[in-house]
Amino acid sequence: MDTLTKDEVVEKIDVSTLEALTRAPRLSDLIRMGSAVTTQYKGWGAGEQACALAAGGLAFEAMKKA
């Protein structure tokens, strides 16, 4: 399912969870954040499907826009 665009998926990511961290954010944190709004995919993915690294990348993009 890739009904949403990349930007729309990025907008769905709740960056407050990362901002609430009391330590510096890690790669693992971003993967979890991106995973919250996407489903796992074997491959980079598209739309609402993303692999672990892609999920992290989406979350990183969201953080940059926040």
Binding site: R26, L27, R32, Q40, F60
Partner: peptide, 28 residues
């Protein structure tokens, strides 16, 4: 993710363990 079928959460947990053991600094 692809070959071993780990969930992304499990991968994240493994990454945390690497960081906390001082093996890799995964700070963004």
């Amino acid at each position: 993710n692809d070959t071993h079928g780990w969930s992304r959460e499990r991968i994240a947990d493994w990454l945390d363990s690497l960081h906390e053991q001082g093996i890799v600094d995964l700070t963004v």
